[in-house]
Protein backbone atom coordinates (compact mmCIF):
# COMPACT_ATOMS: atom_id res chain seq x y z
CA UNK A 1 0.00 0.00 0.00
CA UNK A 2 2.83 2.32 0.90
CA UNK A 3 4.48 1.64 -2.45
CA UNK A 4 1.22 2.33 -4.23
CA UNK A 5 0.88 5.64 -2.43
CA UNK A 6 4.45 6.52 -3.33
CA UNK A 7 3.77 5.74 -6.96
CA UNK A 8 0.61 7.80 -6.97
CA UNK A 9 2.40 10.71 -5.38
CA UNK A 10 5.33 10.34 -7.76
CA UNK A 11 2.88 10.35 -10.63
CA UNK A 12 1.36 13.52 -9.26
CA UNK A 13 4.74 15.23 -9.34
CA UNK A 14 5.33 14.11 -12.88
CA UNK A 15 1.97 15.61 -13.72
CA UNK A 16 2.91 18.83 -11.99
CA UNK A 17 6.19 18.81 -13.88
CA UNK A 18 4.42 18.50 -17.18
CA UNK A 19 2.24 21.48 -16.35
CA UNK A 20 5.05 23.88 -15.46
CA UNK A 21 4.92 27.24 -17.20
CA UNK A 22 7.62 27.87 -19.76
CA UNK A 23 9.58 30.80 -18.38
CA UNK A 24 13.07 29.63 -19.21
CA UNK A 25 15.80 31.81 -17.73
CA UNK A 26 13.58 33.66 -15.27
CA UNK A 27 13.61 33.52 -11.49
CA UNK A 28 10.11 32.06 -11.54
CA UNK A 29 11.22 29.32 -13.88
CA UNK A 30 14.22 28.47 -11.71
CA UNK A 31 12.00 28.39 -8.62
CA UNK A 32 9.54 26.11 -10.42
CA UNK A 33 12.30 23.68 -11.35
CA UNK A 34 13.63 23.90 -7.80
CA UNK A 35 10.24 23.06 -6.31
CA UNK A 36 9.72 20.22 -8.71
CA UNK A 37 13.10 18.73 -7.84
CA UNK A 38 12.51 19.12 -4.11
CA UNK A 39 9.06 17.57 -4.25
CA UNK A 40 10.16 14.72 -6.46
CA UNK A 41 13.15 14.04 -4.25
CA UNK A 42 10.91 13.57 -1.23
CA UNK A 43 9.01 10.83 -3.03
CA UNK A 44 11.99 9.08 -4.57
CA UNK A 45 13.73 9.20 -1.19
CA UNK A 46 10.70 7.55 0.40
CA UNK A 47 10.81 4.72 -2.17
CA UNK A 48 14.53 4.27 -1.49
CA UNK A 49 13.79 4.45 2.24
CA UNK A 50 11.32 1.61 1.86
CA UNK A 51 13.89 -0.38 -0.02
CA UNK A 52 16.37 0.26 2.78
CA UNK A 53 13.86 -1.14 5.25
CA UNK A 54 12.99 -4.24 3.27
CA UNK A 55 16.58 -4.72 2.18
CA UNK A 56 17.60 -6.50 -0.98
CA UNK A 57 16.53 -9.90 0.40
CA UNK A 58 19.80 -11.31 -0.85
CA UNK A 59 18.88 -10.57 -4.44
CA UNK A 60 21.98 -9.33 -6.28
CA UNK A 61 20.04 -7.66 -9.07
CA UNK A 62 17.90 -5.73 -6.58
CA UNK A 63 21.02 -4.82 -4.61
CA UNK A 64 22.64 -3.38 -7.74
CA UNK A 65 19.53 -1.41 -8.64
CA UNK A 66 19.22 0.04 -5.15
CA UNK A 67 22.87 1.11 -5.37
CA UNK A 68 22.16 2.62 -8.78
CA UNK A 69 19.13 4.49 -7.43
CA UNK A 70 21.23 5.91 -4.60
CA UNK A 71 24.02 6.88 -6.95
CA UNK A 72 21.59 8.93 -9.06
CA UNK A 73 20.15 10.44 -5.91
CA UNK A 74 23.64 11.55 -4.88
CA UNK A 75 24.23 13.04 -8.31
CA UNK A 76 20.91 14.85 -8.04
CA UNK A 77 21.88 16.25 -4.63
CA UNK A 78 25.25 17.33 -5.96
CA UNK A 79 23.86 19.27 -8.87
CA UNK A 80 21.00 20.59 -6.74
CA UNK A 81 23.58 22.19 -4.43
CA UNK A 82 25.29 23.68 -7.44
CA UNK A 83 21.97 25.12 -8.57
CA UNK A 84 21.42 26.58 -5.10
CA UNK A 85 24.74 28.40 -5.43
CA UNK A 86 23.69 29.76 -8.81
CA UNK A 87 20.41 30.93 -7.33
CA UNK A 88 22.41 32.80 -4.70
CA UNK A 89 24.30 34.53 -7.50
CA UNK A 90 21.01 35.28 -9.28
CA UNK A 91 22.14 33.30 -12.29
CA UNK A 92 18.62 32.01 -12.83
CA UNK A 93 19.25 30.51 -16.23
CA UNK A 94 21.98 28.21 -14.96
CA UNK A 95 20.14 27.52 -11.73
CA UNK A 96 16.97 26.52 -13.59
CA UNK A 97 18.95 24.32 -15.92
CA UNK A 98 20.69 22.56 -13.04
CA UNK A 99 17.51 22.09 -11.02
CA UNK A 100 16.08 20.55 -14.19
CA UNK A 101 19.16 18.34 -14.41
CA UNK A 102 18.73 17.34 -10.77
CA UNK A 103 15.17 16.36 -11.57
CA UNK A 104 16.35 14.29 -14.55
CA UNK A 105 18.71 12.44 -12.20
CA UNK A 106 15.84 11.84 -9.82
CA UNK A 107 13.84 10.32 -12.67
CA UNK A 108 16.74 7.92 -13.29
CA UNK A 109 16.84 7.18 -9.57
CA UNK A 110 13.12 6.46 -9.60
CA UNK A 111 13.47 4.14 -12.61
CA UNK A 112 16.12 2.06 -10.85
CA UNK A 113 14.25 2.05 -7.53
CA UNK A 114 10.99 0.95 -9.15
CA UNK A 115 12.73 -1.87 -11.00
CA UNK A 116 14.28 -2.98 -7.68
CA UNK A 117 10.82 -2.99 -6.11
CA UNK A 118 9.52 -4.98 -9.05
CA UNK A 119 12.21 -7.62 -8.57
CA UNK A 120 11.68 -7.85 -4.84
CA UNK A 121 7.92 -7.90 -5.20
CA UNK A 122 8.11 -10.76 -7.65
CA UNK A 123 10.54 -13.01 -5.83
Amino acid sequence: MKTLLSLITLSAFFMIASALPALAGSKESALSWQKQAIDTRVIVASVIGELDKTGDKGNDAAKDLIADAKMWMEKADEIFSKADGEMGKKDFEKAGSNYNMAWQYLVKSATAALNAKSILGGS
Partner: peptide
Protein backbone atom coordinates in the same frame (compact mmCIF):
# COMPACT_ATOMS: atom_id res chain seq x y z
CA UNK B 1 31.25 25.36 -22.73
CA UNK B 2 29.23 25.51 -19.53
CA UNK B 3 25.92 25.01 -21.27
CA UNK B 4 23.23 22.59 -20.15
CA UNK B 5 23.54 19.08 -21.53
CA UNK B 6 21.01 18.14 -24.16
CA UNK B 7 19.00 16.07 -21.69
CA UNK B 8 18.29 19.18 -19.63
CA UNK B 9 18.36 21.76 -22.39
CA UNK B 10 15.95 19.86 -24.59
CA UNK B 11 13.40 19.37 -21.81
CA UNK B 12 12.95 22.90 -20.51
CA UNK B 13 9.66 23.69 -22.15
CA UNK B 14 6.54 21.97 -20.93
CA UNK B 15 5.32 21.38 -24.47
Amino acid sequence: QGKPPFEAGASQRDM
